[in-house]
Design a protein around this nucleic acid. Structure first.
Length: 679
DNA sequence: CACGCTTATATTTTT
DNA sequence: TATAAGCGTG
């Protein structure tokens, strides 16, 4: 059954008790190994519900467990505890959060909800009166999250990552303090709280041992992307003096989540933190053909950090990766479309191909072009769906039904009826007692439904419609979440038509939301699953019609982690894109960008194409030249890296045919100039 | 006080 | 490009 595994993989799979670190290079069969280990443990008689498998996404957990299922005879893998740190924390805390004073019916705030709460507090504290420009709500949320996850002092985070906000440190601290108070009042947890409370539970002398006793084995995927908080949780779960059955898998060369305070130190210091750890290295790459692997090895070789493993492959192949210089973005789109179709001609379906890029909006132009040419695609990455105003409106309605003390929920809901803006909404919240959260107090929801409130005459009718919509959803026993959404849609339809453009598309989204809800029996379950595992692609919604069709995959590099395709196209391989200008802060950030390119390239099995446009058109700001010139990404360095590529210039070909002279010197001039600005 | 309009601005990656 | 703040009107 484990016959397909190589020696290193087998030794990892069959490792006995004690800590185990598997350093698994890209494409070395990490998933098979981890799934194999789960299957092995079950075969050894470990009860599946006593195994905890922590992965980076829900999708990864599903894949891993279904593989383990196939490998294990008994087929009990589905009872394994699996999911992301956050999702597992959510489950655990609903059962075991009592000792922390945490009622089991808390609701979860996603990052943008958290930002809204921060914004509300900023208004309340009167900090919006603009003397200086104050960090925006999303920035506040980012600062908060980074501080908590890294476990560092606010001032240090500000100095290092948000130097332009240092002046406001006092106010920021004030907001953060109030933020914690509000969350507790309202019985809501944000992403970071989920981890914090889990850690509190796992490390407390009272509850820690009970928690640790729940599991015989803990396995963690993508360990290079865990942060200090998560490492503490793991140590709490496998305390010293007990059998420390902890398996972690990771690759320091693929750590790309520094912005979420992930630290490679977790993987590097694992043997110190868990003394007696066995270390297994997986170095045989099964994914890429040799010319691609050589190129990716060359990219990572230039990283000044030590990655001491050498990947090799038995997969031979002739075609080196191509490096394609395009005139501009339009030509890049054209080239990608053509190359994609060429591969399909030769028998590679669209599904086996992916286009990868640094930032969500990098595919905008390509999406237009693909649509124009009737090439179907799905896009992964980005949070677009959950961020849309109308989706938030619908979910806010469900949230106040679920948790009537949810402040941001109410603030949004109460502004839906015509004639009510922020000021009236605040007054209504005051009247129904949203903020006086004592547990015994009557529910603000009941107050709104059963008692009259003062509102301006113009708002009375709309308010009444809101009331009856909410009232229609009160009895969960009769109406499941999908039914509630159906009822709420009647109310939302005119609201959306009045407030937003392209209402028909938005109404379709509400139907999708309803479709998704039909899989859940309770509102609470539905809401927390949606915030912890949001639909990651438009394809997550595409029901049967799109499912069997062939489609090209578009993905951010971050979302492509752990996946692979026959053919990979990496676009925008220009300085300013990879590495992103935004990341050009310090060496550490630049190195993370290098690893990002490495991750992108190592997704490819048989063919890899990297393109970059020489010229970008930006919307003119003032009298600036709307064209900017880009250079090839510095990570594709000429001597040791570019030699592994076949260089193609669609532009040069076209121009030579036209008898024009191709000027290749531009980039050198730009490089010279760039050298003058940098120090 | 709501709402529609204009103008400034800052722009990554995701649980 | 999308959002937020600013301003005028009803």
């Amino acid at each position: 059954m484990f016959g397909d595994l190589n020696e290193a993989q087998r030794s990892a799979v069959m490792h006995g008790d004690g800590p185990l670190l598997i350093v698994a290079g890209a494409g070395t069969g990490k998933t098979a190994t981890l799934a194999g280990r789960v299957a092995f443990l079950i075969e050894q008689g470990i009860r599946p519900e006593r195994i905890l498998l922590l992965t980076f996404s829900r999708r990864a957990a599903r894949e891993m467990l279904s593989r383990a299922q196939r490998m294990s005879a008994g087929g009990m893998a589905e009872r394994v505890w699996g999911g992301t740190f956050h999702a597992v924390a959510n489950r655990l805390l609903r059962h075991a959060g009592r000792p922390l004073g945490l009622p089991p019916d808390f609701t979860v705030l996603d990052q943008s909800d958290a930002a809204d709460v921060l914004n509300l507090i900023r208004d309340d504290l009167g900090l919006s009166a603009r003397e200086r420009r104050f960090p925006k709500k999303d920035t506040l949320a980012a600062i908060y999250s980074r501080t908590v996850n890294a476990g560092t002092k606010l001032v240090d985070v500000l100095t290092r990552h948000y130097p332009w906000c240092q002046e406001e440190a006092g106010e920021i601290r004030q907001i953060f303090q109030a933020y914690t108070v509000r969350k507790r009042e309202q019985n809501v947890l944000d992403y970071d709280d989920l981890l914090l409370f889990w850690k509190a539970l796992a490390t407390s002398p009272q509850t820690g041992p009970q928690l640790a006793a729940m599991f015989d084995h803990v396995l963690v995927d993508e360990y290079q992307d865990t942060n200090a908080l998560q490492a503490d949780i793991l140590e709490g779960l496998r305390p010293e003096g007990t059998p420390r059955n902890l398996t972690v898998v990771g690759d320091d060369a693929q750590s790309i989540y520094g912005f979420r305070a992930a630290t490679v130190r977790n993987i590097l210091e694992f043997p110190q933190r868990f003394p007696g750890a066995t270390v297994v290295k997986l170095e045989q790459n099964y994914r890429s053909i040799s010319p691609i692997l050589q190129a990716t090895n060359a990219v990572i070789a230039l990283s000044p950090q030590r990655h001491d493993k050498i990947l090799w492959t038995g997969r031979s192949g002739e075609q080196p990766p191509t490096l394609r210089t395009c005139l501009d973005e339009a030509e890049q789109c054209d080239d990608v479309c053509r190359t994609v179709l060429e591969h399909r001609e030769r028998g590679v379906p669209l599904k086996a191909q992916a286009v990868l890029f640094r930032a969500v909006h990098h595919s905008d132009l390509l999406e237009v072009e693909l649509t124009r040419r009737n090439i179907p695609f799905v896009k992964y990455g980005g949070l677009k769906f959950m961020e849309a105003a109308h989706v938030k409106d619908a979910l806010a309605l469900l949230r106040v039904l679920e948790n009537p003390f949810d402040e941001v929920g109410w603030f949004r809901v109460l502004q839906l009826p015509e004639g009510i803006g922020p000021v009236t909404a605040r007054s209504l919240m005051e009247q129904i007692g949203v903020r006086k959260a004592q547990r015994e107090q009557t529910s603000p929801l009941v107050n709104l439904l059963d008692y009259p409130v003062k509102a301006p005459p113009g708002a009375v009718e709309g308010l009444q419609q809101l009331r009856s919509a909410l009232a229609g959803c009160m009895d969960q026993a009769i109406l499941p979440p999908a039914g509630q959404l159906e009822r709420l849609r009647v109310f939302l339809e005119p609201v959306i038509a009045r407030r937003y453009d392209s209402p028909s598309a938005r109404l379709r989204d509400l139907e999708q939301l309803e479709l998704l809800a039909s899989a859940y029996e309770t509102r609470g379950r539905y809401l927390s699953e949606l915030t912890l595992d949001p639909p990651s692609s438009t394809g997550d919604f595409a029901g049967p019609p799109l499912r069997d069709e062939d489609y090209l995959v578009l993905s951010t590099i971050h979302s492509a982690k752990g996946l692979e395709w026959d053919v990979v196209h990496v676009i925008h391989a220009a300085d300013g894109m990879i590495p992103s200008d935004m990341a050009a802060g310090d060496d550490e950030e630049i190195e993370e960008e290098r690893r990002l390119l490495y991750v992108a390239m190592t997704r490819a099995r048989d063919a890899l194409h990297i393109t970059f446009p020489m010229r970008y058109y930006r919307r003119p700001r003032g009298l600036e030249d709307p064209h900017t010139y880009a250079q090839l990404s510095r990570f594709l360095e000429p001597d040791s890296v570019r030699t592994h590529f076949e260089t193609i210039a669609p532009l040069a070909g076209a121009q030579r045919e036209a008898g024009e002279l191709v000027v290749t010197g531009t980039t050198d001039v730009d490089a010279f100039l760039a050298g003058l600005w940098s120090d």
